[in-house]
Nucleic acid binder design. Structure first.
Lengths: 214, 214
DNA sequence: GGCGCTTCATGACATTCGTCATCAATGCCG
DNA sequence: CGGCATTGATGACGAATGTCATGAAGCGCC
């Protein structure tokens, strides 16, 4: 499932990259494109969060390029673990549909690059170099979205309850799962819905998910 | 935003392919990988549904490889239009997270290939050849899911109303947008929820979306 | 201790929602 | 023409939900 790509490590120092994406098509294609760059070497690939961690431990890459959506553990979770285990390894996130909240989570986790999949491979290579050199890069559009979205106005409990409400369960079910009384749950949901200018808890849950607040 | 790739049309007949995917990174990478195949020529690329249609009209490809999720019009919608406008053009869908209902919709639209993005580029090339030769290919796992999920038990109107309910809007809002009375909307939603074994319309909407029935 | 804040709970009330029975208009088909 | 299914509507009733006022318990802090 994983294999190194490239002609081998030349005398000069190349950027050693780990690629993690559950979509084989994209991962393979990306590896091929990056292999065109003389100063970049893809040393490992992974198709899931846990696998990405294992590969990183084994190959100690300079930069880990992580997809946000992966089975097992998402890109941000992997980045958090990597930060603790391999402080020398820079991390960056690549995502299809980036939500503002994810960006904030990612930056908190020490991620140094955050790019949508709409960029070109050329651009991605440049960003990998930037990140490797200790710089940071955040897609301007995503950054603007994050700024305009602002901080999550929800308290911890509100977010918690809202998360449980996300799948459309009735109040009784939510109260059971949260070990709270139904009245309390309704209060939290009501307050959350007010803060999010939503008509009801379902719309509130949707908004919170869109913003990446849950 | 779009450009043909390849060394040019040689004397022999190569499969002329249109690539449509809104993620530039993937589209470009895919084009590069497919260019390795001697018998495949990527003649056009598109980043949205409408653009895919325009490119198809202009370049008349043999096979259109369409991403399911695209702005403007999704892959299946594009396939439907192509079937009418360019009957000689075979269509296939590539998708990240394939839901059972999408497969059925796609097959109904005359799509001849349905593959997840977890396949390798090699495999994709083979499937493109298969489709070009008049064959069909459906990912076995997706097919199994589709069969186990069964037919959408919803009537057209039920699905329509459920779709409008998907964002958590209150009944009044749904009724307004559907130009129906509130009572009627509630009847449809109630019936849909019953059929889907859901506690309420929100859960029903979630289930229908998961199954690809909306 | 007194103060303020958060968390959690209760009860009351109006509104919305889910469910059901019923019915009218339309269109298809034998 | 006479059934018959589909679509859309109405009204009623109970349950679920949103909203608000109120208060108790826990906790940090001066």
């Amino acid at each position: 499932m994983t294999h190194p790509i490239g002609t081998g490590e030349a005398g000069e120092a190349r950027v050693r990259v780990l690629l993690a994406d559950d979509e084989h098509l994209i991962r393979g294609a990306l590896a091929a494109l990056l292999s065109y760059e003389d100063d970049i070497l893809v040393v490992a690939e992974a198709a899931s969060g846990p696998e990405a961690l294992a590969m990183a431990r084994a190959h100690r890459p300079d930069v880990a390029v992580l997809d946000l959506e992966m089975p097992g553990a998402d890109g941000v979770a992997v980045a958090t673990s990597l930060r603790a285990e391999l402080p020398g390894c820079r991390t960056m996130i690549v995502t299809g549909h980036g939500r503002p909240g994810h960006l904030k989570r990612a930056l908190t986790a020490g991620v140094r690059g955050f790019v949508p999949k709409t960029v070109s491979a050329q651009r991605l290579a440049e960003i990998i170099r930037t990140v490797h050199a200790g710089g940071r890069y955040v897609d301007p559009e995503l950054a603007a979205d994050a700024i305009s979205a602002g901080d999550p106005p929800l308290t911890v409990r509100e977010a918690e309850v809202l998360d449980l409400a996300a799948d459309g369960a009735p109040i009784a079910e939510i109260a059971r799962r949260a070990a709270l009384s139904q009245g309390t749950v309704r209060n939290y949901l009501s307050s959350a819905a007010t803060k999010l200018s939503a008509e009801n808890r379902h719309e509130a849950a949707r908004i919170a998910r869109e913003r990446g607040w849950v």
